[in-house]
């Protein structure tokens, strides 16, 4: 009998981890590229807000000078960070949908039976989703620039590390949600109960002081919303400023949601009726 050679044990080197990360990012990118509808929707959604909603509200909504802005800004300029957040929020939820889809289609089993640690695989998944969101954000910013939205040039660069933190944080929320969703059909609830409240109860469309003028309760809900801090983190970075409060709350939210998602992730979920033989 010929014995097969023992497969190499790849414990000590870093390269298998990097190859694995690259493979997961590559697959996510390929899937995104192939899903033209998702690609177009990801761009059209914020552009509609920018071109239609912002144009309408420009006249109606007066904004006083608010940090990080040093002067009055047009409403179109004000909502850019919120729309960037919206892209990442939708992308994070889309990643959660894709996790549920992968679980239903069985490809999650292939991921989870890799010899690498499960927590690492889940972080790679998050990074892959985040990379896709970065592409979407920069295409959106390029279009915004083309239609005359003026932002500090260096702000585009300073934004990149912030987008990684905010993208991971929103992706981690999506991953945590996916641990509670048993079937793909249940995903519509996420739209109604997560995306819309998170977006509207934030500083994406109006500054928090404006919200406080109308309702103290709504103000506090907005102030406690992690998405608000992500948007503010993005807003300050775009203007080459750093808000310790926004960065701190966003990073803390990332740690909490990521930890909870890894802890709650149960590959057994979705096996009901498929494999109890």
């Amino acid at each position: 009998m010929t014995l097969m050679p023992s497969p190499p044990i790849r414990r000590a080197t870093l390269s298998p981890y990097l190859r694995c990360l690259w493979g997961i990012v590559w697959r996510e990118g390929l899937r995104f590229y192939q899903q033209r509808g998702r690609f177009i929707a990801a761009l059209v959604r914020p552009l509609v807000w920018l071109l239609v909603f912002a144009a309408g509200f420009r006249a109606a909504l007066g904004l006083s000078i608010t940090a990080p802005y040093e002067t009055y800004v047009l409403y179109e300029v004000y909502i850019i960070p919120g729309l960037i957040g919206m892209i990442q929020l939708f992308n994070g939820m889309q990643s959660s949908l894709s996790l549920v889809y992968d679980r239903e289609m069985g490809s999650m089993k292939v991921l989870l039976t890799s010899p690498l640690p499960r927590w690492y695989l889940l972080i790679c998944k998050l990074l892959a989703g985040c990379a896709v969101s970065l592409v979407q954000v920069y295409i959106f910013l390029a279009i915004s620039y083309a239609i005359g939205i003026d932002l500090p040039l260096l702000g585009y660069l300073a934004l990149a590390p912030t987008l990684i933190v905010t993208g991971l944080m929103l992706g981690a929320i999506g991953m945590l949600l996916s641990t509670f969703i048993k079937q793909l059909e249940n995903f519509a609830g996420v739209m109604n109960f997560v995306i819309f409240p998170a977006f509207f109860l934030s500083s994406a469309l109006y500054p928090l002081w404006k919200m406080r003028e109308s309702s103290e309760l709504l103000y506090w809900l907005c102030a406690l919303n992690p998405f608000t801090h992500a948007v503010e983190f993005i807003r300050f970075s775009l203007y080459l400023k750093f808000s310790i409060e926004a960065a701190g709350w966003t990073s803390l939210s990332l740690l909490i949601f990521l930890g909870a998602a890894i802890w709650a992730y149960d590959p057994q979920r979705g096996l009901d009726g498929a494999g109890r033989g």
């Binding site: 390269s15 190859r19 694995c20 493979g23 991921l111 890799s114 010899p115 690498l116």
Partner: peptide, 14 residues
């Protein structure tokens, strides 16, 4: 592509 993806998950060299 499916096989490439699997190879990456197992850290196989290019």
């Amino acid at each position: 592509q499916n096989l490439r993806y699997f190879a990456a998950l197992h850290g196989l060299p290019h």
